[in-house]
Design a protein around this nucleic acid. Sequence first.
DNA 1: CTTCTCACG
DNA 2: ACGTACGTGAGAAGT
Length: 618
Amino acid sequence: MRVHEYRIAGEPVEVRVCTSEDDLELFDVWARDMANSREPVAVDTETTGLDVFSVGHRLRLVQFGDDHTAWVIPVEAGRPFWQAAIKWLTRLPRMVVHNAAYDLLVLDRHMGLPLEETFPRVTDSKIIAALIDPRQPQDGGVGTGLKPLSAYWIDPNAPDTQEGLTAVFRSLKLTKATGWAGVPLDNPTYELYAGLDVLLTSRLLKVLRRVFVELGIRPALVPYEHQLALVCAIMQRAGMVLDEDYVRQLDAELEREAEHFARIASRFGVENINSTRQVADCLLAMGEALTERTAGGAIKADKAVLLALADMDLQWNRLDIRRPNPLANAVVRSKRAGKWRSAYVQTFIETMDANGRVHPNVNPLQARTGRMSINRPALQTLPSSDAMIRRALLADEGHVTVSCDFAAVEMRVLAALADVRRMKEALHAGRDLHDFTAELVFGPDFTKAHRKLAKGIGFGKVYGGGAATIQRQTGAPMEQVRVALSAYDRVYPEIKRASARWQREAMSNGMVIETVTGRRQPLDRDRTYAVVNYMVQSAARDVLGQAILTMHEQGLTQYLRLPIHDEVVASVPAGEAKELAKAIEDCMTMDLFGVHIAAEAEIGGRPWGSLYPNCPAY
DNA sequence: CTTCTCACG
DNA sequence: ACGTACGTGAGAAGT
């Protein structure tokens, strides 16, 4: 056995690395003791990389620990080590893992320990941390990573184990990408840091539990978030089928398009179409007037500016109001093709598993409002104006894609939370909310433009925007926006009152407000108006969360693929599509303080893209 | 590392 | 006193 001694918060700790079968017997004794105690055992894994499902991904170490002792089991070193880890991962009654979904997916994939069996025995310290303060460091929070949490709550000198290992990788002539696979299993820093992670996790849970209770956070949120995390991890494990032939063809096609238009741009002197400065300089030299500036003071040459110069609206339709600038046209087209290729198509190929599926990372509790996020690939942000990218993702063999989304959920949540009387009446009567508002504000002869403005003002209310933004977004004349805004406030006076009340509550409570589901929601001192959005977005997230748990209870988890804020995407057997779509719809339909939350499912073909414009026959 | 840009809800 | 669009993930350029 190799033992590494260290100090955390002034106390000596030990990292014990098993190197022989005798060592494993000592580990066995320790683990048996822990299993009989009430204390959870901290568990962590070290692997070859973050893409758990990618080809060639391996599990290298499994670590166990309490506050003072860590055991590093080099499972890659041989069968006895592997068996010892499995034995206790199966038997330990209580475990704590920081970001459980990651490690439990690793154990599911590599050790055959199903998520459904391990997750119920695990407390995820990241979840507790996010409930205490959901903000990332860049938003003024502690952050929810093991390193910032340890530095804040346990020991300011706790090493950044990831950063420290990056240095080790460099000294071994390895990179961040190759280091995790290439670092020797017995590298002392690797062993020490692997052990420290469980020591810190064990200590962290104790501190966070105490703080959680001291802050009086609603206890029910803990099992709720763990359940949601399990369902999201199951979605990640399932993943989605890639249309490999199409993806490769699309990759080549986008590359051709990007290069074709880049060549045209180069004829106008733009060597790099992604350099905004070069593009702006050339356009100015061509005699175009570029008046807008970015926040940093540079000349703005974004999509909106370029499309206008190319005589197109934001939907790329010809306007026929000017002679299209050929450089602007070439730059927007080349940029779009290049971006769609690198951000989407190539990530599909990179993250694909051996069976042609992609398994995006689903983070159930990512945003400061609790909203979920998805990355690698970012399947919540695929272009929706066109089926081009979404066509690449398919329902399972013999299945079709179902998408079910809430109808104007944020407006309904706002009506419920702020108790907006006339909004609730309209929704209760089954009216279209924006029609209703337009009629109240502009009278029964309201036009399409009036409805658009009413909708824009609704968004303005939900986001905390003002007249100028609403004017920019809707294109309506400023005077009309002002008139409509004040009429809106007269019709729905409860919104302003709720905003003022929530801001007061936050002020008198350390700039933190409790959401309707009991979530702690910190506000930024200099933008307290955002409280309306936070309360609405956060509650809407929990409306989706509740719906997902209802689906789980109804046995629908196996069909779920993606949560997209106000929508779920599912893969269902073609023969039962109607029934299952209805079942999903039913789970998403609910009542929030007397406001009906409605959901509508759409049944597509096998490609997800079949639910979007311009998808060829499928 | 920061800024800009752009994709989504 | 008044008004402020919200939340993400991602690539590329430029410092």
